[in-house]
Structure formats: C-alpha cells, structure tokens
Amino acid sequence: MAIKSPPVESLAQHLSKVLMDRRKLAKLEVDFIPQSRAKWEKILNDRTTDREQAENAINACYLYAGIDRARILWTENPLTAMKILIDRPDLVDVGSKILHQISDSCDRQIEQQIAPEFIHVVKAYANPRSQVVGEQQKMAFDLLGDFLNQILIYEIQKSYPQLDPTLLPATIQDYRIAYLSYFDYFHQIGIDIPQIQLLVDLARSCGCCWAFENITILTPKPSAIEFNDRGELIALVYDGINILD
C-alpha cells in the first residue's frame, strides 16, 4: 500500500495559521505601559498650541485619506466653532472618513499580531483617562472626555435651545484624544502603524478639529481646565475668559 505524503501547506495557509496564533506581550513591553501612560498624561496637561504642527498634521491626514487638502480656519474656542457649524449646514463632513481610514488600519495591524486579552490591558492601563472598575475589570474608556463634550453641548444649547446636538459633526480629535495612547503604545513597541503619528501630532498641537470638504476648523488648546472639589468641570479658559461662565 502506498504511503501518502503529508499535505504541503501553501504560503497563504501557513500565514493564516501564524496570524491566528497572536502573541502575548513580553515582560519588557508590559513594563512599558506606565511610561506610555505618563507620556499621554503630559500631552493632555500641555497647554501649548503649535499652529504650524497642527496644520501640517491635518493636511497629512487629508492626504492619507485620499481627500484634497482644505482651507484652514482657526477659531478662538470650541463654542465659537460650534456656532459657525450651526450656521453652515452645507458643510460636508470628512472627519469620520479620516478617523476610520487611520484607526481601522491601526486596529487591523494590532489585532493580527497581539492576543486580545493583552489589547484589552493596554486599552485600560495606557490611557490616562480610562478607569478599570470592579471585579470583572470592566473598563470605562474615557469618562472625562465624554463629560467635557456634554458640557460644551449644554453651553451651546443655552443660546440655541432648539438645537439637536446629534446634528453637530464630530471632531477628529477633541478632549477624548487620550484614546490615541492605545495606538501609540503599540506603534512604540514595533507594530507597523506609522499613520497614527498623524493623529498624535494633531493631539499634541491643538484643541478641537473639525474636517470638511474645502475647510478645516481648528481651535487652540484651553489655557486652563479647572474642576471643583467634587470633580465637576467649572472652567475652560481661553484668553483669560472662562467660556463656561
């Protein structure tokens, strides 16, 4: 009786098995998580606006997403920007396309290479605005960022009580920029996602950013963010003025 040879794997079959066997993080990589968190705490606390870096970063984001670069408009603060947006329903939002183009490509690279339980650990502990709650290690990803966005919408609705906040386009990055720490961490340990640097540069250099066809609206970072003893936001200061007052 003839002995059958074992089936020969094609390269595609071999690679598919390798990708299914996603690796754990090495101890040195786990030990790097607090350093990544500290880096992003520093970014979030930095009140410096770099207009040239912000404009270069947003132009590069447009190009990465295959969109023609737009005219850039700086406004004094996010409330001023939102009032402009309310009066410009004709603007075509491309921010979501830019975000998805960058973040989806980063997610794919990470998920192909890193075991899911380790991805979850990095999301929870590299982000200075995330909280791990309870015995089940449920993660509240960015309570502070969500709270700040609600405050801004509340302030806008004082002047525009009939406003449907769901009609306001999303920013590319705003007070929730801390989620970038997740991608940035994996980029720093060697996952090939250089495109995330575009959003990191944007986060470092400005406050809010709305991207549309033909126009981009940017705001500087606030000069101060203040909370009361109950942890409630009481001040977003621009040019010496608390825009929440």
Rank of each mutant, 00 (worst) to 15 (best):
M1R: 13
S5H: 04
P6H: 11
P7D: 13
V8L: 14
V8R: 14
E9A: 08
E9T: 00
A12Y: 05
H14N: 14
H14D: 14
S16A: 14
V18S: 05
A26C: 10
A26N: 12
K27C: 04
V30E: 14
F32W: 11
S36C: 15
I43T: 08
I43N: 02
L44T: 01
N45A: 06
D50E: 12
Q53G: 05
Q53V: 14
A54N: 10
N56G: 09
A57M: 04
I58H: 05
A60I: 00
C61F: 00
C61L: 09
Y64G: 02
I67K: 07
R69D: 00
L79P: 08
T80Y: 00
A81N: 12
P89W: 01
P89N: 06
V94M: 06
S96C: 05
Q101W: 00
S103I: 13
S103G: 04
R108G: 10
E111M: 08
P116G: 04
P116A: 08
H120I: 12
K123Q: 12
Y125S: 02
A126Y: 00
N127W: 12
V132N: 09
G134P: 02
Q136D: 11
Q137A: 11
K138T: 08
A140R: 08
F141V: 12
F141W: 10
D146C: 13
E155K: 15
I156F: 07
I156R: 14
I156P: 12
Q157A: 09
S159W: 03
Y160R: 08
D164M: 00
P169C: 15
T171N: 13
I172K: 00
Y175C: 11
I177Q: 13
I177S: 13
I177T: 05
Y179K: 02
F183P: 11
D184T: 09
I193V: 14
Q195S: 12
Q195L: 09
V200G: 07
D201I: 03
A203F: 04
G207V: 09
C208G: 11
C209G: 07
A211I: 05
F212G: 09
E213N: 11
N214F: 08
T216L: 00
T216W: 00
L218P: 14
P222L: 01
A224R: 07
A224Y: 01
E226N: 12
D229C: 05
E232T: 10
A235N: 08
Y238M: 07
N242A: 06
L244W: 07
